[in-house]
Simulated scan of single mutants.
Amino acid sequence: MVIDYKKIDLFGKSFIQKVVVKPPFEFAFPVAQQACLLYVLKGEAQYEAENQIDVPTNYSLLLNCINPGKQLHESNANSGSEIVIVTFHPDILKKVYERELPLIFHPSNKVTNQSVGKINNDFLIQKYIEGLLFYFENPSLANDEILILKLKEIVLLLSQTRDAATIQVILSQLFSPTIYTFKQIIEASLFLQIGVEELAQKVNLSVSSFKREFRKLYNDTPANYIKTKRLEKAAELLSISNARVTDIAFDCGFNDPANFTKSFHDKYGATPTNYRIKLKK
């Protein structure tokens, strides 16, 4: 149930919104070419599409609002929530940044379809949101010049957070939407030091759905298939290069040299060093 709702427009479109709700509530996202930053000022909320993300107080969620069926609802049936929403419209961004869009809106070099990311508690973003509350109480002071500055401020802050790489992936889709196939994402990620959960995020699936889709396409588990491909790549590099074994391990996606050595021995019957020596005899 919505207890209070306020919004401030920029150039005729919603820029910032403040929603106070109490259980039960659901906030459905519109089907529109835009992105949203949702900041939980009080209480807790839960974002649910294919997978589920809990958003506690002072955390935020960045997502593109292109696909239907995405909802935000309460994660605690006994408490209300207060949510501030900052919306990014491509046409307004182009108008504000007449000469060139900031780098965070440029396509990233990551092969991923990730459309939502949880932003860790960031002190500067927290203070930014607190600053917006003044304009909800004094809407007459929120003129276009001030709002343009606030838009540029949040873009700058997002580009400087520890989650900037994920943020770029999501925001760049506003201007360069690229949809990769499941296999394209898997093949591009084989030798990155990431786990199954991060791979699932890249294809916008829950871990369980990701595993089902993976087995359907590869007739194997993600862990076993990826490990096999990494070991095959390592064996190839050992045969054609003089790079250190530890460097090869990291380049092939192993973050633990000892685990790499054991896995390699299990598959090839020799340590990486001995494998290389045998090839050169």
Rank of each mutant, 00 (worst) to 15 (best):
K262S: 14
F105D: 08
E82P: 05
A35G: 11
Y218W: 02
F214N: 01
F175H: 06
K216V: 04
F182R: 06
A142C: 05
Y5E: 11
N76A: 11
S79Y: 11
K95C: 02
G195N: 13
Q160T: 07
P107H: 10
F182C: 08
D256W: 00
S75A: 14
Q46D: 08
L190F: 06
N58W: 08
D4P: 01
N67E: 15
G269V: 06
E213A: 15
D54G: 03
Q201W: 05
S189T: 07
C65V: 12
Y268T: 02
D251C: 10
P90G: 10
P107M: 04
N67T: 13
A249D: 08
L217P: 00
K94L: 10
S206D: 10
Y218R: 03
F11I: 06
F105H: 07
Q52V: 15
T112P: 03
P30H: 09
V207G: 06
L62P: 00
F175V: 07
L147I: 07
I179Y: 14
V31S: 13
V31K: 15
Q71C: 06
E48V: 13
S208R: 14
I85H: 08
L192Y: 07
I92L: 12
F264P: 01
A223L: 09
K278M: 11
L103V: 13
P272H: 03
V155E: 08
F264H: 02
Q71P: 00
V196M: 13
D54W: 07
A249E: 09
C36W: 01
V84Y: 06
L72K: 02
S176T: 14
E44A: 11
I92K: 08
S14G: 09
V84C: 11
I194A: 09
T112G: 05
L10I: 02
T112L: 06
T178K: 15
L190H: 05
K94P: 00
L217M: 10
N138F: 04
K229Y: 02
H89M: 03
S241A: 05
A200Q: 03
L132W: 04
Q52I: 15
P107C: 01
G117R: 02
I148L: 05
G253V: 06
E100W: 00
P90L: 08
S115V: 02
Q193N: 14
K118G: 07
P139K: 05
L141D: 14
F123Y: 14
F254V: 03
Q17P: 04
G269H: 03
N242R: 08
T87D: 04
N138C: 03
D256P: 00
Q46V: 13
E197R: 12
F134E: 11
N204P: 03
Q201G: 09
A270P: 05
I92R: 10
A45H: 01
E98M: 04
D251S: 15
D122V: 04
